[in-house]
Design a protein around this nucleic acid. Structure first.
Lengths: 221, 221
DNA sequence: GTCTATATAGCGATAGAC
DNA sequence: GTCTATCGCTATATAGAC
């Protein structure tokens, strides 16, 4: 269809500009001018800027969810899945998506920062949409992690899963508050391997004992 | 001084609104109206919105750096510091700062998201200012971590330190993409303990071995 | 389905009264 | 030191020509 060409061009342009300049910081004019169209086209296809934003993410998140769940299923029967396999099923598709969304972005403003941005932006609508899109995935992975980490209670598994998500997002976003001068940003595969090593150990850590409450004398070895 | 009253009120209002609505999403009018002043006052005291933003952070970051370095020094002589002590020196002051900056913020938009936001926002000026403010701290801590983790090479220590920063920021920001219905957000002390358990294990993990080949750029045949 | 032209509103910044 | 009023600009959104 020819009508789809403009639509896709708008989505591509928006995705790229959002990653470079932020979502709030990107005007419809910038999007349409990059896409070779004009402001009215956005409202014709998406109704509003909010509709455009929603579509930019929806286009990526459904395939991401599918891929993660397929990879998880390939780890074996529930209850017998290896922790590293579960973790890779969770991390790898996300990192690859981050890299793909990054194609036109400058080297210093890397990749998946788009998703990280959304998590922090003020408006509720997108964060809620994101949470909805991820809910099924997270429920399934939380269950898999819980079975693979029998030494942890439910609440600590959830807390660690949320930590792991933060580590992953921050890693994919390529944020370096502390960066060596000549250090190159890691390639996708190297990043995944380092993330997995880091997170497997973190998830397997012994349970956190309450330091305040009943056992004040105990220091963890 | 009486002049300081308005100035401080502007900084307080700005800090609170930035955390709630984002920096880009907060207008000077919103800040001044909350502070009981008006737009001109911002330009009188800070010259511009950018100057205001800079001051909001500068007011918090210098004490944070001091506190962290003091805590690190209290861990003992360089080369003999325990990993957990170094990590707590790094994490605890940051978490407490996040909690303090959160006072007026609604429960669903927690704490340190302000710093997390800055890391992702488009403009370079603030990220550079933040990197500058943290540089000394990070150099000192990177050195301490490297001595405490002799099984890792320099580049992996740096990579893991950046991961740890991401974990910490995400945790303090209170982001929960996956949240149980009745789950309460953890208290500061509980968060710190869980973060430390998680990160000690992660940092101590064995070195990541290249999985593809001897050189990271090579594609497997 | 795509354009131009415009309506409406909000922004940061500044001048000048007090 | 603090105010009101306003300038100049840009944003999203829409109406209507083609």
């Amino acid at each position: 269809m020819e009508t789809t060409a403009t639509r896709e061009a708008l989505l591509d342009a928006a995705e790229e500009l959002f990653a470079e300049q932020g979502i709030e910081g990107t005007s419809l004019r910038a999007v349409t001018s990059k896409a070779g169209a004009n402001v009215a086209a956005v409202h014709y296809y998406f109704g509003s800027k909010e509709g455009l934003i929603r579509e930019v993410f929806a286009r990526r998140l459904a395939p991401l969810a599918d891929q993660r769940l397929a990879r998880l299923a390939a780890c074996g029967e529930p209850g017998e899945q290896a922790l590293e396999c579960i973790l890779r099923a969770f991390v790898e598709p996300f990192v690859e998506l981050g890299w793909r969304m990054d194609l036109g972005t400058s080297a210093t403003h890397r990749s998946g920062r788009l998703i990280a941005q959304v998590l922090l932006e003020p408006g509720d609508f997108l964060r809620n949409a994101l949470a909805d899109a991820f809910r099924e995935t997270f429920v399934r992975f939380a269950d898999a992690f819980e079975r693979a980490l029998p030494h942890l209670d439910h609440s600590e598994v959830i807390a660690r899963l949320n930590f792991a998500i933060g580590t992953m997002i921050h890693g994919v976003a390529g944020i370096r508050l502390y960066q060596e001068e000549h250090e190159a940003l890691p390639r996708s595969k190297e990043l995944v391997d380092r993330l997995v090593t880091f997170l497997v150990a973190a998830l397997e850590a012994p349970a956190t004992l309450p330091r305040t409450a009943s056992a004040p004398d105990e220091e963890p070895a």
